Structures are given as structure tokens and as C-alpha cells.
Simulated scan of single mutants.
Amino acid sequence: MSLDRPVAPAPYELLPQVGAFTVTSTDVRDGEPLAGRYAHGSSGGENVSPQLAWSGAPEGTKSYVVTCFDPDAPIPGGFWHWVAVNLPAGTTELPTGAGSGDDGLPAGAFHVRTDFGSRDYGGAAPPQGDQVHRYYFVVHAVDVDALDVDQDSSAAVVSFNLAFHTLARAILAPTFAH
């Protein structure tokens, strides 16, 4: 199966400009294919969230939100793979596997439901034979201690709130296809 469609624009280029800072990973690289370990079980993976570390967030950062979004999913609005909300300002890293549930997150932080329907990391899962997909792992530096959302909020509601509270973003965008 090959879905003949143009590549979606980079999602954060469509939003108002904000500052930038640095995110790195010992597990994934910007522009390079994800290892199967970080793919969803439906794609033959282990569904493990990658390690992320960040630095250089702007003054005034009071919390962080970490997301993973696939703009290349064959649906109009892309696909949310991970949304970890209200990470305390002192947090500078999530270890490999932190997306397995709220127990892997710092106190006060939590996951909201992804487009898989669960409250955890859902790995890469493009349709078999589809184009290469980009997975935007983004750390959002936020200007409030906690977004006004809860575990029942959708990823879209979190994203909407981020539009008003993001000071800066740090982005890694590895790829995956199978």
C-alpha cells in the first residue's frame, strides 16, 4: 500500500514563533530513522519512549510539556503519540522508558490520552508501505507552573493551551517507515 500524498509541512512552522533551546537524546537522532525499539508493537517495536535531555530553556520557564506528534499520518490532523504534561521546571531529562506511565514521570506530571487512546507513549506506527513519517519529539518550555488541563484532556486541548503559554521549543524529529 502506498498513499500518494504530499509531505505535510513541519507542524511548528505553522504556529507563532517562539524561542528555541536544545534537546538531545542518547536514543534518537534528528532526521535519522528510529530504532524498532521506539516503534509501536503494531509495527514490530517495543513501544519504549526514548531518552530526552534538554538545556538552555529561557528565563521564566516554570514547567515543561513533552510531546511526540506525527504530521505525516494519513489523517487531516496528524497523530499524537505522546503528551507528558506539567513537568516541573527543574526537570532536564526523561530517561528511556519514562513514557510507560505516570510512574516514570516527576511528581506532579502526568500523561494525557494519545491518539492510540492510552495515557502513555505510543511508538511509531505508520501504515505498512506508507511514506517515511516524521516524529516530532518536542520539549515545550511553559510560562506557568501547570497548564489548566487534566488527565482527561485531549492532546489537542493541551496543544491549544500551549499556544498561549509556550516560551520556547526544543525539537528532535527522527523518522520511521516499515
Rank of each mutant, 00 (worst) to 15 (best):
G41F: 05
G45A: 03
P50V: 10
V157D: 15
P76M: 01
P127L: 13
G104I: 15
A84S: 14
G77H: 09
P95E: 13
G31H: 08
V149T: 14
P33D: 05
E32A: 12
F116A: 15
S159M: 14
A10F: 03
L147M: 14
G101H: 08
D115Q: 12
F164L: 13
P106M: 15
V7T: 09
H40T: 01
Y136T: 04
G101L: 05
P11K: 08
P11C: 01
R29E: 15
H178D: 14
S49P: 01
G78S: 10
L3G: 14
P9H: 04
T114P: 01
A125R: 10
V149K: 05
F21D: 02
T96L: 13
N86M: 04
A163W: 01
A173P: 01
G60I: 11
V65H: 02
L162M: 11
P95G: 14
P106K: 15
E46T: 02
L105G: 00
H165M: 09
P76G: 00
N47Y: 12
E93I: 09
A20W: 01
P174F: 13
S25K: 08
L162D: 11
P9I: 05
T61C: 09
L15E: 12
P76I: 05
A168C: 06
P74L: 09
L162W: 09
R119I: 01
A10N: 07
S153N: 10
Q17N: 03
Y121I: 02
A124N: 06
S100Y: 04
G31T: 07
F160N: 13
T67R: 01
P126F: 12
A89E: 14
T166G: 07
R134T: 02
G60W: 11
P11E: 08
A141T: 07
D27P: 03
L52N: 05
L172C: 06
D150C: 03
D143F: 11
P174G: 12
T175N: 04
A141I: 06
V112K: 11
A155W: 04
Y38A: 04
G77E: 13
L14P: 00
S55H: 07
E46N: 12
F176C: 02
V83P: 00
A57E: 15
H111F: 13
G36Y: 03
G101E: 10
G19T: 02
V85Q: 08
N86W: 08
E32Q: 14
M1W: 06
R5N: 08
S63W: 07
A173F: 11
S63N: 11
V23H: 02
V144R: 15
T96I: 13
S100P: 00
V83A: 06
A125L: 07
L94R: 09
A177E: 11
L34S: 02
F21W: 06
G97S: 07
A146K: 15
A155H: 02
D72Y: 04
A20G: 07
W54S: 08
P71N: 03
D72Q: 10
N47W: 07
H140R: 04
L3S: 06
G77A: 15
A125S: 06
S153P: 12
K62D: 08
V28K: 00
G77Y: 11
D30E: 11
V28S: 03
H140V: 08
